[in-house]
């Protein structure tokens, strides 16, 4: 049961969001024609124990995709930013 501090809507309950997967993977450029970068992007994931960056979608709120820091061990959440602002 976590609450997420959405940069647009403020602190909201977990139930308003959907989980969107690993936010550390970078989508290859549109023109990328090789198979491997796409396979890495779609299928290959680390399973870190501890700090992690994840996408969450404020699906029944502002509909913004967020990047949330979450500890996979303690389930504690850290800062939350708009995915569009993330580095």
């Amino acid at each position: 049961m976590i609450r997420i501090d959405c940069p647009v809507c403020g602190i909201r309950d977990e139930s308003e969001f959907t989980y969107g997967g690993d936010a550390t993977v970078v989508r290859p450029a549109m023109g990328e024609a090789a198979l491997k970068p796409w396979i890495d992007y779609v299928f290959m994931r680390d399973n870190p124990r501890g700090a992690h960056r994840e996408y969450w979608h404020h699906v029944v709120g502002c509909r913004q995709w967020l990047v949330l820091e979450r500890d996979t061990l303690s389930h504690m959440v850290g800062t939350c930013s708009l995915a569009r602002d993330a580095a």
């Binding site: 959907t18 969107g20 989508r27 996408y55 979608h57 509909r63 913004q64 995709w65 995915a83 569009r84």
Partner: peptide
Amino acid sequence: LALSEHLLQTAWR
């Protein structure tokens, strides 16, 4: 819609 939003807010900003 969710995939479109995701792409527009991440890879296709």
